[in-house]
């Protein structure tokens, strides 16, 4: 079976006055149909730049320096502008962290969903028709109301003509999820969609995603800094640090028995209410300066299990069971 998304050797650089910032330095992973993959990392790890690169949305001074992103076997970087336009929002859609900013505040939510669907079904509408309000499509409206209902918005018929500010935080995020799933996408990129929401609302959105993805067989790349969300939602997880992938594998294996010392340190630094007597472990040191990263393993300076060879070169991805680990310890199989 062909992967929905195949990222190979992706390098994305930003040319700045002070030098080249290597935001993403060799990222490889794939997503299979119907799979939810978590892309985890702290700020500055390159996870969001990876997402923009997948959509070919990196703007100057950023550039894709190397690598390929294949969507359904087709190289995204070879596509023309209009082909990309069809892909975005149609086959690949996005859910953002802040839905209030993603929606246009001057148009009703229903109208915005309607326009997305209409554009992808029938192509763009002539501006004159648009101004005269002749671009309305009853079938699209019906589909939108159905979708609002499916994502759990009560009384969808009436809510169709409400403006974004009339929705609560949880409801507008539901509408955003509805918009992303409207054109029956094969892949959804979700960038921190539950960050900033209350735990009870977060949980409702996670449940919603779980159910819808299962039903529609959509693949999801879930970008987050929150390993607790990954634990409950994702089939596989990609852990990034300073532009590199540190560990890729099935969520249950990676989180219960991390093979990369970085993954382990990250898990240990999360406070847990069920372990009150365990001290929260601190990762010593800071994330390396992106302009001046070490030659060796990116994590070597902070790693409690560092060896001499770690300072020579960043380790390649070693296969360890059904995961890949960028750590020399994984090569020796001792971890």
């Amino acid at each position: 079976m062909m992967s929905v998304l195949q990222v190979d050797g992706l390098h994305t650089y930003f040319d700045t006055e002070n030098g080249i910032v290597r935001a993403v330095e060799g990222v490889d992973f794939s997503i299979e149909p119907g799979e939810i993959v978590g892309l985890v990392g702290e700020s500055g790890s390159g996870k969001s730049v990876t997402a923009s690169s997948i959509m070919n949305l990196v703007e100057r001074p950023g550039r894709i320096a190397e690598g390929t992103v294949r969507y359904d076997g087709q190289d995204v970087f070879d596509l023309s502008k209009s082909e990309l336009q069809d892909l975005r929002g149609g086959e690949i859609s996005m859910v953002f962290q802040d839905p209030m900013n993603a929606f246009n505040p001057t148009q009703t939510v229903g109208r915005q969903l309607h326009d997305v669907l209409r554009t992808h079904r029938n192509g763009a509408v002539h501006p004159v028709k648009r101004i005269l309000g002749l671009d309305h499509d009853e079938d699209c409206k019906e589909a939108v109301v159905e979708m609002l209902d499916a994502v759990g918005i009560p009384n969808p018929e009436a809510r169709y003509s409400d403006y974004p500010h009339e929705f609560s935080g949880g409801m507008i995020q539901r509408a955003m999820v509805g918009m992303a799933l409207l054109c029956d996408p094969k892949l959804v990129l979700a960038d921190e969609p539950t960050t900033g929401l209350d735990v009870s609302i977060e949980r409702q959105i996670l449940e919603l995603f779980n159910d819808l993805v299962e039903e529609l067989n959509t693949a999801v790349l879930w970008i987050t800094h929150d390993l607790s969300v990954v634990a409950k939602l994702c089939d596989r997880v990609v852990v990034m640090y300073a532009g590199k992938v540190m560990e890729v594998g099935p969520t249950d294996v990676v989180l219960s028995d991390p093979a990369n010392p970085y993954t382990e340190a990250l898990l240990d630094s999360i406070p847990r209410y069920d372990r009150p007597d365990e001290e929260i472990r601190v990762i010593e040191g800071d994330v390396p300066d992106p302009l001046n990263r070490p030659d060796g393993c990116r994590f070597a300076d902070r790693c409690p299990k560092v060896h001499e060879r770690c300072h020579d070169a960043h380790p390649p991805q070693y296969e360890l069971g059904d995961r890949e680990v960028a750590c020399y310890l994984a090569e020796e199989g001792t971890k």
């Binding site: 735990v199 949980r203 969300v229 634990a231 219960s256 209410y273």
Partner: peptide
């Protein structure tokens, strides 16, 4: 009941 932990499992 809503607290999440980084422990693999179903919601």
């Amino acid at each position: 009941d809503s607290i999440t932990l980084p422990e693999p499992g179903e919601l």
